[in-house]
Design a protein around this nucleic acid. Structure first.
Length: 475
RNA sequence: GCUGGUAUAGUGUAGUGGUCCAUCAUGACGGGUUCUCGAUCCGUCGACCCGGGUUCAAAUCCCGGUAUCAGCACCA
């Protein structure tokens, strides 16, 4: 990054839904650069399309919340594009009056043909007052110009080698109601125009964006040149795919959710920040992940296991252990050959950190019911942190508390010290619910545990009959 | 089709002309430790897209090819 004197960055999502994992790259890269250069980050809501990407009023709030969760701080500034409409329209009028722009009434199809052959459309050469009249007509709420009837174009060199840049559209008519400002405005700027003007007004010094917006930079640079402004330094990142999810399409997910394919934006199968958060990912892990990927223009495809590995590093040493036995279990009657000389059985909350304390189970007694995973049952097993045991049909006899041999260690439960629990795991697009038992304890929604020999999970709900609902995080 | 971007181990990443028989992480495999299939420690495996050129010297610069991604929307 050059020119690092006073760095102003921005992250500009469309509030047509909450953040996806993809957005978190923008949040984290921008905020990390700001941290590095002691700069600021603007959170800007680019909510100027009411039709194809209708803004969701709740998403504004949620995005702010997710921004804070990801970075650990609030944005330095928040801008709503829809609040700034008068300013954009005023700039557009200036551009029309200065002949930087003109109002075009050609159809999109007709214009494309002309553009591809480097031909000027008839509207391009209209005089300024005619253009201004057309501009007024576009803005007139009573006008008979409907959506698509007219568009404001920025005048460029028609010989530009890249056809995408020739006389690019800057504003259009849009009559769909906006959730924040209703039908106050009829003419709305397109991203390339709105973003260009706003970046200048906010004093943005560096733009970090996906490389799919490279042509946007080129279009906006033309406008900046016309206005005698200096375009910010721009950097790009390449496309990211996650093996397990593919791309991150907000509109696609929105459709799937409304069809009932997913339970909501925080459905554990979705690559949204809400889902990751609900499952128990740490924002630190997400930051480490994106920082490791860095800022480059390569198109990459990463695996969730990379993020999970970062997450384990963050949470493993602070996450208490707990025993869970799934629905495929077996109950065995305990035959205790020796008495356990204590009122309680103390199990460490964390094997490597005694300061975390202990889980106190009632001391097992003769005739107690021991619950095990069926698959773990073998003739000779070790009940973890308790005793060597021998299984014969429905009886389990424990004769030695010390660990004396290498027999397999299994996790287990004392039936009289359990609570019902459901562990929800996703397997591809399928959700598998495992109805089992968890050891009795004081649980709260949001707690993250490592289920012994299974992996991490987070409590999402505790129902009235104290059934604990858990969602699986990762191994 | 036109325009532009990218190309280092399975996956990511460092490396901007010599110090690179190429860094680190993750992964896989093997082993130590541990009363978890967790954590931790040690070891092993594995890469500069292809072809030309410039240069005493190229992963690094240039050209061509190939692959791949993107833009060519009155979306963001």
């Amino acid at each position: 990054m050059e020119n690092t004197k006073k760095v102003v960055l921005r992250f500009a999502p469309n509030p047509n839904g909450p953040m996806t994992l993809g957005h978190s790259r923008g949040v984290i890269i921008n905020s990390e650069y700001a941290k590095m250069y002691d700069g600021e980050v603007i959170l800007r809501f680019d909510d100027t399309d009411t039709k194809r990407k209708p803004p969701e009023i709740w998403a504004y709030k949620q995005i702010q919340d997710e921004y804070e969760w990801l970075t650990g701080k609030t944005p330095d500034r928040i801008v709503f594009a829809s609040d700034r409409m008068p300013i954009y329209l005023q700039h557009a009028e200036e551009d029309i009056l200065n002949q930087n722009a003109y109002v075009c009434t050609c159809s999109a199809e007709k214009f494309k043909i002309l553009r591809d052959s480097k031909q000027a459309c008839p509207c391009r050469n209209l005089d300024t007052s005619e253009n201004h009249q057309r501009w007024m007509k576009m803005n007139d709420l009573q006008s008979n110009w409907e959506e698509g009837a007219a568009v404001v174009r920025i005048k460029t060199d028609l010989d530009l080698p890249n056809p995408a840049l020739r006389d690019w559209p800057a504003l259009r008519i849009q009559t769909t109601e906006h959730p924040r400002v209703g039908t106050t405005y009829r003419v709305w700027p397109l991203l390339d125009y709105q973003s260009a003007i706003e970046d200048y007004l906010q004093g943005v010094t560096h733009i970090i964006r996906g490389k799919d917006l490279m042509d946007s930079t080129r279009k906006q640079t033309i406008l900046y040149d016309l206005r005698g402004w200096k375009y910010p330094e721009t950097m790009y990142w390449g496309r990211v795919k996650v093996h397990e999810f593919g791309g991150f399409s907000t509109s696609g997910m929105k459709a799937d959710i409304s069809e009932g394919k997913y339970s909501g934006w925080d459905d554990q199968r979705l690559p949204t920040i809400a889902a990751l958060r609900r499952r128990g990912f740490s924002p630190k892990a997400l930051r480490a992940f994106w920082i490791e990927l860095g800022l480059n223009q390569k198109d990459i495809s990463v695996s969730m296991t990379t993020i999970e590995s970062h997450n384990s590093k963050v949470i493993d040493k602070i996450t208490p252990r707990v025993s869970f036995i799934g629905q495929n279990n077996a109950s065995l009657t305990l035959d205790l050959k020796k008495e356990w000389n204590s009122e309680i059985l103390k199990l460490p909350k964390h094997p490597d950190d005694s300061e975390m304390g202990y889980r106190n189970w009632p001391s097992p007694k003769n005739g107690d019911i021991i619950v095990l995973e069926k698959d773990d049952i073998d003739e000779e097993i070790r009940l973890k942190e308790f005793a060597n045991a021998t299984v014969k049909s429905t009886k389990i006899s424990a004769d030695e508390f010390e660990r004396t041999d290498r027999r397999p260690i299994v996790h287990w439960l004392l039936e009289n010290h359990t609570m019902p629990a459901i562990l929800s795991t996703s397997n591809g697009d399928e959700i598998v619910e495992n109805k089992g038992l968890i050891e009795t304890g004081k649980y709260q929604v949001g707690d993250i545990f490592q289920l012994e020999r299974m992996g991490f999970a987070r409590i999402t709900e505790i129902s009235e009959n104290s059934e604990i609902k858990l969602v699986f995080l990762h191994e």
